[in-house]
Write a protein that binds this DNA or RNA. Structure first.
Lengths: 187, 187
DNA sequence: CGCGCATGTAAGCGTGTGCTTACATGACTC
DNA sequence: GAGTCATGTAAGCACACGCTTACATGCGCG
């Protein structure tokens, strides 16, 4: 039978896209290299030619997420924007979001590290700048925990009614409650 | 070499305990029947003699958690008690908590179902009784999401500073913020 | 047009896994 | 003491997995 036309950049991108979707749907352990190669339409040997190992491919998928959520937003708006993006179900992002892959792969050291690094250190720093309370970092972590919990319950576990709740309503509730934590003293 | 003295009840309990600990530490996929049998100190064949399959053993572990968290507490205290238990790190419960096993196994259908059933329907019902708002069920789910997120970030991912934060402080913050969601109208 | 290399595939390897089967033996009953 | 059954182990099976290797061939260059 005919082999696929040669285009290494396209092959690499196809493998990455296939991996992103399948890791988000099934997690690291339940996704096989045969699954990824099959979805990309190539032979599994190419996965090893381009990425070296399944682990390395997973690490590349985890590193793909843009940092635009935190870029160029005043800290006050950062949380609202993060929530908007998390709750926004339009477009293909829902199905290949690295957060889903990470939440589904939480026993995998790399996934756990990705959550700590990505949602952890980067976001918590911004969040803790929103309050002048002494334990700002603990409060920031609590907000972060809530974001992770919402991601888990709504998108990964798809529990109703949260799964189909109006994103604006959810945002409103969360932002209002979080104000209690990320308060600033009067001055 | 000598074989183990015969005691089927003890063997079964040893397998269950070993499974609970290892599923909580590593998740379903990363725990093997050889691991469980080894920790229980028996031959792996006995796992199949007593439980039928690895899947069935996992289901039994998921079903073990007592319902005492919700029993006999007025709804107003339920959330505080749940938080107390989640944040309490003393004793062996931390290391074999089915919630940890479930969070680490979230791609496993049984684990996802266990979270929805256990933390979901049972707790959300109690939580939604705490408010007379029209969307009480969505608010309850948001509170539940936060509990799951705290469990994930503090116990499974062990992210500092939340991992070592004072449980009373954490409870206080969460309960205060949650009051904004689970409010009752004046009357 | 021939050569060489990049890109692709087929086939297979070694290991680990869940599970089964045949056998051993401890314990209890008659 | 013999027989039976429950409980335990050793050994192995079939399959799936991540990964490697040998080979095929498309494409670009001189």
């Amino acid at each position: 039978m005919t082999t696929r036309p040669r285009d290494s950049a396209a092959t690499r991108a196809a493998l990455l896209d296939a991996a992103a979707v399948l890791f988000a749907e099934r997690g690291f352990d339940r996704t096989t290299v045969r699954d990824i190669a099959g979805r990309a339409g190539v032979n599994q040997a190419l996965l090893f030619r381009y990425f070296g190992s399944k682990e390395a491919l997973f690490a590349t998928v985890m590193a793909r997420q843009s940092h635009e959520l935190l870029a160029e937003s005043p800290a006050e708006r950062a949380l609202a924007r993060v929530l908007e993006r998390m709750l926004d179900e339009e477009g293909p992002r829902l199905h290949d979001h690295p957060l889903h892959a990470a939440l589904r792969s939480v026993s995998h050291d790399g996934a756990a590290a990705a959550i700590r690094q990505r949602m952890g250190d980067e976001y918590a720093e911004v969040l803790s700048s929103l309050t002048d309370a002494e334990d700002a970092d603990v409060r920031a972590d609590l907000v972060l925990a809530w974001l992770l919990g919402i991601g888990l319950l709504r998108s990964v576990l798809a529990k109703e009614p949260l799964a189909s709740a109006d994103p604006e309503r959810v945002s409103e509730h969360v932002l209002r409650a979080v104000q209690v934590l990320l308060e600033r003293s009067e001055r």
